[in-house]
Computed example of a mutant assay.
Amino acid sequence: MAVLPSLEEIRLELMSFEDVSAALAQGRTTVLIPCGAVEQHGPHLPLCMDADHADALAAKVARHLGDALIAPTIKVGCSAHHLVFPGTISLRPETFESICLDYCTSLAQHGFKRILLFSGHIGNFPVLRDMLPRLRRAVASDVEIDAFCDAIAWVDRWRSAVRDAGGDPNAVGGHADIAETSLMMWLRPDSVRLDRFEVGYLGALSEQQLQSMWKNGIKSITHNGIIGDPHGSTVEIGAQCLEAIADLLATSFAR
């Protein structure tokens, strides 16, 4: 039975340059670029939610793919619609794209042939989708760059995972809800403030509401920064949600 490599053996920042060179020589030319955010997640979750989520997903997706290495997580993302809440840090889309571009060109220069980007922060999805053609043009034709940008599939997978784990799928809204709260109960339990759970905006957002959120900020939709409801969150739901999204990403990136 094959022994899976440890995270120290597949996370680039924990490897030496000789380790990376040896991995490339062995044909391990796929690398993941996890992206996150440092932004508000209601009164009950820490700002690191999306970055922690991306870190954890990267480990699972790499295991699913079997031969992928993991680049350092881009922890800060595009969160301008959350800036009304103190502590949120947001990159301009062009700044985020420049960071992703520099990651991709650096990795391609070293010999990586598949560069796969994904984000634990759904707010990065439209920016990733927009930049993808430019990232592809910046590297040689034999280098494949892909990014997961399907927010609908992501939230649908969360709803299914919550239901399968015994929770209420209607509490999934996409931000600081039962899914994300459960994830943090699994990933960083001491950070979840159980006494600060509040109901946020419930129900599907219309296109008009989404446009209002992007233009005027999330407070135009929800006063407490929550879309969905954290009540009913459990460690079991968190584990199920993590595995469900890792499977979604790995299936999308498989070939």
Rank of each mutant, 00 (worst) to 15 (best):
S90Y: 14
E243N: 15
V127Q: 10
P5K: 04
L101E: 02
R163T: 12
Q40S: 12
T105P: 05
I10K: 03
S212W: 02
G232P: 00
Y103I: 01
Q209G: 08
D102T: 02
E94F: 06
G27W: 06
W154T: 06
G200R: 00
H175K: 15
M49D: 15
I115T: 04
C48Y: 13
L91S: 02
R129T: 07
A54P: 11
R163H: 14
L210D: 04
P46E: 14
E236Q: 09
S21F: 13
M49R: 10
G232L: 01
E180V: 01
V31N: 02
I99D: 00
S182C: 00
L32Q: 13
S141T: 15
E13Y: 08
D164G: 02
N216Y: 14
M213V: 05
H231G: 10
F197D: 06
T222V: 14
Q40D: 14
L69V: 01
A161R: 00
V84T: 10
V235L: 10
A68C: 05
I145V: 15
D150I: 02
D146H: 02
G111W: 11
L132P: 01
I227A: 03
D130W: 12
P133G: 00
H44E: 13
Q209R: 15
A58G: 15
L4K: 04
G87Y: 06
T29Q: 12
R92L: 06
R134E: 04
F125Q: 05
S191Q: 09
E198K: 00
R114G: 12
L205R: 15
S106V: 13
E198R: 00
A179T: 08
D102N: 14
M131Q: 13
D142H: 13
H81E: 08
Y103P: 02
C241W: 08
H81T: 15
K215V: 15
S233P: 09
G111V: 11
L248P: 11
W214P: 03
I10N: 00
P126D: 02
E207T: 08
P86F: 11
A138L: 08
L57N: 03
V127G: 12
I122H: 04
R11V: 01
R114K: 07
R114Y: 04
A171S: 05
H64V: 11
L14E: 06
G200I: 00
D177P: 10
I122S: 06
S182I: 03
S98D: 07
L117W: 10
N216C: 14
D102E: 15
R28V: 07
A179Q: 01
